[in-house]
Nucleic acid binder design. Sequence first.
DNA 1: GCGAAACGGTAACAAGAGTTACATATGGCC
DNA 2: GGCCATATGTAACTCTTGTTACCGTTTCGC
Lengths: 215, 215
Amino acid sequence: MITSEELKHKLNPIFEKGLVDEIQEFAKVIEVKEGEVVLDYGKNITFMPLVLSGTLRVMRKDEEDKEILLYYLSNNESCAMAYACCMEAKKSEVRMVAEDNAEIIKLPHQKLDSWLHKYPSWKTYVFTSFTHRFNELLKSLDSLAFHKLDQRLIKYLQNKSKILGKSSLPLSHNQIAEELGTSRVVISRLLKQLENDKKIVLYRNEIKLLSTFDI
Amino acid sequence: MITSEELKHKLNPIFEKGLVDEIQEFAKVIEVKEGEVVLDYGKNITFMPLVLSGTLRVMRKDEEDKEILLYYLSNNESCAMAYACCMEAKKSEVRMVAEDNAEIIKLPHQKLDSWLHKYPSWKTYVFTSFTHRFNELLKSLDSLAFHKLDQRLIKYLQNKSKILGKSSLPLSHNQIAEELGTSRVVISRLLKQLENDKKIVLYRNEIKLLSTFDI
DNA sequence: GCGAAACGGTAACAAGAGTTACATATGGCC
DNA sequence: GGCCATATGTAACTCTTGTTACCGTTTCGC
């Protein structure tokens, strides 16, 4: 668990001192394990999560109850959707799941509004958070609209590699298929092509990206 | 051009009196003609547009300079992306074009921040605006990810019809193809099917939706 | 060790969508 | 009228993706 000193050190670059103090006073740091659900559909939102370490996956159900991946949250990031829900004291429209073991701060929703008035850094943080999420969504949109599945798969692998910080990814073909919204067979086919092109090596439940894997 | 009284009447339900007064004092109402560019890529943003009547189309260039439609803005709506840009005094990342003749208020960006502190209704407006845009994007994402082109075409036509307020749409097959990111031939093919199914009637530069056009 | 479940490889086929090519129709303009 | 750009209809073909089916392999629980 992160110490009080480490926390201060981590937040100082983003927020002004007064806000860091308030966070230390009112917010609670928690640890979540891989796969743990941090926030679920329909639950009341009592806090806004800010990710200290690890990664959260944010998902949402569409009109026909299919689940789509919105984005990942990692180092110092936070969920704009959750914020919007907080402000209107609504139920959650998203589900957040720990992608790996993670530490998050729960910022109490009662404070958020007053911080908006008191701390310019908080205001900036919230708005840039919104724009970042917006841009992420636009990237996904673009990817779906203009890129073929093989391109999307490559970007997906690159992204995973970046998030996990390794070139050896613990993934089954099935998982990938679900996240990209297609079927296992298709993914196997494309992965096999990438392997033939000497861009990756396939093992069971593991994909190793080779150094040539960059275009 | 909208009168001062009409403006007040239109804004009163959304904003508190003080804000309506300030808007009347500092904001400028302008009329734009169909096809006119209200805001373009790379321009400095000096105002945030709020649509009084008519419709604006908001677009954005992706990494490879392809243009994608983000959403439409109409009655009392406003562009969250523009707001985010305003706050950070950045150049515009979007282009806004009048879909038909429209009236918009230009809210001066110097005021936006102080309004955030002074008027709760403005804060609510901005945040719900963000969530609405977010939801719009998610709908597009969903549409692209899970719906076939014929479904998307139908939704597109329904949406157009709603925006224009008529069932007779002045559209060429080419225009539709561009907005849906496909080719003319494909759209012609699908439209012909819809005509065979007695859901629409095709004319030159015009598509008439029949009453059976609802599923 | 045994059986079930999960994982991955592969083939064959179907459907959707994009592409090319060409014909025809319409309307504006000289 | 004749020319030309734009709009639309249609056919034939390819490519990508999804689907189904069946295989052997690995892993896990018992």
